[in-house]
Simulated scan of single mutants.
Amino acid sequence: MNEARHHVVVVGAGFGGLEFTRALAGAPVRITMIDKRNHHLFQPLLYQVATTALATSEVAWPIRHLLRKRKDVTTLLANVTGVDRAGKRVLLDDGSAVAYDTLLLATGARHAYFGHDEWEPFAPGLKTLEDATTIRRRILLAFEQAEREADPAKRQALLTIAIVGGGPTGVELAGTIVELAHDTLRGEFRNIDTRQTRVVLIEAGDRILANFAPKLSDYANKALERLGVTVELGRAVTRCDAEGVVFGDKQLAARTILWAAGVAASPAAEWLGAKADRAGRVLVEPDLSVRGSPEIFVIGDAAHVLRPDGRPVPGVAPSAKQEGRHVAATIKARL
């Protein structure tokens, strides 16, 4: 490979990073793809892994396999710890560094507990394959423990699942967990009736799916209630522990709590020393570059991008892919 070629480093093999790499095919560059995991994750279906509907292999694909025909791409499994903007290097956790001519950060988002990180052990979020398998194990073990529990109150707590956050992830989890309990597992236990499982969706706002039109939120709310989900609105969670959750003036005994209430951007802004919004997303220029460093771009959930109407671009896969294509076109034009 020609080492003199313009070197593009991509951090993050999610939707945005892979689409950028695909769109840059044929350009006179060499590309290094860095990710802390060896697989690309189809995150929109992660909730189905968490609720036993899909196997992990159905939503995760090896990055090397996806890029096997791209001889211009080198894939590295590594943890990024920072970016040396002056030296144009990506810093790795083993003390080494990867030099770049152009850098794309497509590092996604992580859970946000609104200053209560101590809740995470009791209320896992759903962002990674490991998260999904953890949630699946907790749900299934709760049923197994309920099968052996003689105390009615403790049994009901084991059969109560609280989901914090009424966004798309929370709504998807609530619906599929009800289906799991009421249909999939029906008749498989002898001492409990899984149809007695109580799924409670807790949303601090006045409606679920707040980013959707009100009539769609109302439709989803009614659909969940028809399935048997209890939807609690207008009260924020103030405590999560091994016994359950407290929201407003209500206390809910639940042995399984799932967190779907908020996300924060990856540490990209910290790596760059760049300005960020309240969620930690980098405030990028209109061409998605970083102010003062036109050779650095940030896309996807790690970037704060505004639409023409002034509203932020939603953190969904199509947006990240479009941004990836846009940056690829920008680099091609520069070259």
Rank of each mutant, 00 (worst) to 15 (best):
E3S: 11
R5T: 03
V8T: 07
V9D: 07
V11Q: 06
A13G: 10
A13Y: 06
L18A: 08
F20H: 01
R30A: 08
I31M: 14
R37M: 10
N38W: 06
H40G: 06
F42N: 05
L45A: 15
Q48W: 02
Q48F: 04
T52L: 04
T56I: 13
T56L: 14
V59N: 11
V59Q: 10
A60I: 08
W61G: 00
W61V: 12
W61E: 14
P62Q: 11
R64K: 14
K69Q: 14
D72Q: 02
T74W: 01
L77S: 11
L77H: 14
D84E: 05
A86V: 12
A86W: 00
A86K: 11
G87F: 02
V90D: 01
D94A: 09
A97F: 05
A97H: 07
Y100I: 05
L105D: 09
A106I: 04
T107A: 01
G108F: 08
G115M: 12
D117N: 13
F122V: 00
F122I: 00
G125K: 08
L129E: 15
D131K: 10
A132Q: 10
T133Y: 03
T134Q: 13
R136P: 04
R138Q: 13
A142V: 08
A142R: 05
A142D: 12
F143M: 12
R148K: 15
A150C: 00
L159E: 14
I161T: 13
V171E: 10
T176N: 15
E188V: 01
R195M: 11
R195D: 13
T197Y: 12
N211L: 14
P214E: 04
K215M: 08
L216M: 15
Y219C: 06
E225P: 07
L227T: 02
L227P: 01
V229A: 04
L233S: 06
V237T: 12
G244P: 05
V245N: 05
D249V: 06
D249L: 02
T256K: 02
L258M: 07
A260R: 09
A261F: 04
A265G: 13
A268L: 07
G273M: 08
A274V: 09
A279F: 05
G280Q: 08
G280N: 07
L288A: 07
L288G: 04
G292R: 09
S293D: 15
D301L: 08
R307N: 13
A317C: 13
S319W: 03
K321L: 13
G324K: 10
R325P: 05
I331V: 15
I331D: 08
A333H: 13
